[in-house]
Write a protein that binds this DNA or RNA. Sequence first.
DNA 1: ACTACATATGAGTAGTTGCTCATATGTTCA
DNA 2: TGAACATATGAGCAACTACTCATATGTAGT
Lengths: 108, 108
Amino acid sequence: MSELADTFRALGDATRVRMLDALSHGERCVCDLAAALGLTESAVSHQLRLLRNMRLVRARRAGRLVFYALDDHHIMSLFQQARRHVQEPAMAHGGMVGQASPASGGGR
Amino acid sequence: MSELADTFRALGDATRVRMLDALSHGERCVCDLAAALGLTESAVSHQLRLLRNMRLVRARRAGRLVFYALDDHHIMSLFQQARRHVQEPAMAHGGMVGQASPASGGGR
DNA sequence: ACTACATATGAGTAGTTGCTCATATGTTCA
DNA sequence: TGAACATATGAGCAACTACTCATATGTAGT
């Protein structure tokens, strides 16, 4: 159950979302990711370790470069699903509870 | 783009995941949620505000009680999708890059 | 109006997180 | 073997988070 939360937490960071988005177009080495995101390679590597531990990305060495790719197909589905939520119309979502008490008559 | 991350971050906490899971069985008032999760009502209320701001739950007042429910159907789909990832077989997910360099000949 | 209950909210705090900097490991080429 | 490059990793720190406690708001009944 909390494994679910861990997975979501791994996705709950703008940097990591951008990394995964970049990887959705194909595998990338650490230095390219760093350049694309405007971060140090160290920062990227740290985040990649986290994503690796959560099994969201997979690494493949090619010479001195290490190419990362999305680990499984569920991840992009997850993104699409979340996007659907974000782009939801957003109807009557006022700050707080408006007025709708079926159990209580007119107040006051 | 970072809105996606915000949504995932809201889901990236064991307490909130448990709350949403509880709500997946139907709407609940704050006190019932608190009792079910073994938390103070204050703690629950704080988290509910966050979930409300992220439009993950919706509130409905009934007398002095406030009933919360999942805001839209995407949320459970998101859970199911994430569960699929978590329950993935978890094949050769060693700690680090094993040995697989198609671009470089036999190593060493 | 007053009390009791249910919920919301602000302030404060221990624990967590995402970066930077320094350093270690791994790989290629001379 | 040694220098140069690519990546990984540990320590440390500023920013953030999830709780607790105190207090405010909202509602029902007397």
